[in-house]
């Protein structure tokens, strides 16, 4: 367990550094962005008859970028408020950024997770099958489908799905997260509408990562099948079910290392996918906030996406550590 704690600490340290880099990067981008909305706001307040002090206080409180003062001062103020987990308010709507993010996060995290789990389960099962039938036609076809799908970027998958199921054969809604005619709450119409709207984004996430899982699982199973200990288990007369479990557990293990990568890829893919389906998630929020120069929301969205990727990495690695004794016990001994 000492080993696990040590790894966790290492991850957190690296994660914090990564967050710092991303936040600094955001700050730099915002500073060089043309059409500074803070400056505009400041000037607006002056025009409305506020004193410069009042205007400055108001804008600083709103979004941490003092329209006056040195760049260093701005930077320190910006980092300081973020350290206090104070994300400020939207420049445009004056709603708390944390509220906006909380709202948007659901629409990204839930479809991405459902899509990942779906594609993982399907990809792993089909990958096992493709490995066992690797010398047959069906196995070849499955492998080929995996290679083709893996090559498709997720926004292409999204466009194809949108074209087929929302335009050519319009059985599913093309945009939004729910039909606004329905009363939000625990009623059948609302829930059905939620589901219908979620199908295409989820299918996009699932399809675009499923090819990777098939190929990864197939090659992993083929490797394990060739391992000496599987033959040894057979020569010892182990039951098929036992041997199957040996194969499955050993083959699935390396997949956890790419699980984190996959989730990270889907989160970044969400930026395009949500735009295509006009789905109100984090990606959509990010794009909109950039378009409206809503820097506080933009910074918050960047921060959250980064944190999500880091957390996905940590969770995957912890899982890996717990199920692989070579990592677990080695850490303990050290």
């Amino acid at each position: 367990m000492k080993g696990i704690a040590r790894r966790l600490a290492g991850h957190l340290a690296r994660g914090l550094v990564m967050i710092w880099v991303v936040l600094t990067f955001t700050f730099v981008i915002v500073s060089i962005m043309p059409g500074d909305p803070v400056q505009a706001e400041y000037e607006l307040l002056l025009q409305q008859g506020h004193s410069p002090q009042q205007a400055e206080a108001q804008t600083a409180m709103l979004h941490r970028f003092r329209p006056t003062g040195s760049v260093l001062e701005q930077y320190l103020e910006y980092m300081g408020s973020l350290l206090r987990l104070d994300l400020g308010q939207s420049v445009v709507t004056r709603v708390d950024v944390s509220t906006i993010l909380g709202e948007a996060t659901r629409w990204t995290v839930i479809p991405v997770l459902i899509g990942t789990v779906l594609s993982f389960v399907l990809g792993v099962l089909i990958g096992v099958y493709a490995a066992i039938k690797r010398s047959g036609k069906l196995g070849d076809a499955l492998t080929l489908s995996g290679s083709l799908l893996r090559g498709l970027p997720d926004f292409v998958v999204a466009l194809i799905l949108a074209a087929i199921f929302a335009t050519l054969w319009p059985v599913l809604p093309r945009s939004g997260a729910v039909n606004i005619l329905y009363e939000p709450g625990f009623n059948l119409d609302y829930i059905l509408s939620l589901g219908q709207h979620a199908i295409l984004p989820i299918a996009t996430y699932a399809i675009s990562s499923y090819g990777g899982w098939i190929l990864a699982m197939k090659s992993s199973v083929v490797t394990v099948l060739g391992d000496d200990f599987i033959l040894a288990a057979e020569l010892r007369g182990m039951k098929r079910s036992v041997i199957f479990r040996y194969i499955a557990r050993n083959a699935i293990l390396p997949l956890f290392t790419i699980f984190a990568l996959s989730i990270a890829a889907l989160f970044s893919g969400a930026i395009f996918v949500e735009r295509i389906f006009n789905y109100p998630g984090l990606g959509m929020l990010l794009i909109n906030s950039i378009g409206r120069r809503d820097i506080t929301v933009m910074t918050g969205a960047f921060l959250l996406i980064t944190a999500a990727v880091i957390v996905a990495n940590i969770v995957a690695d912890m899982f890996y550590t717990v199920i692989d004794p070579r990592v677990r016990r080695a850490g303990d001994a050290a």
Partner: peptide
């Protein structure tokens, strides 16, 4: 299957790798 292991014991040429690494 029962004969293997039960009545005929086999020590595999690569016996160093004859164990499941996860158990």
């Amino acid at each position: 299957r029962q004969a293997r292991g039960g009545q005929i014991g086999y020590v595999f040429q690569a016996a160093q790798n004859s164990l499941n690494p996860l158990k």
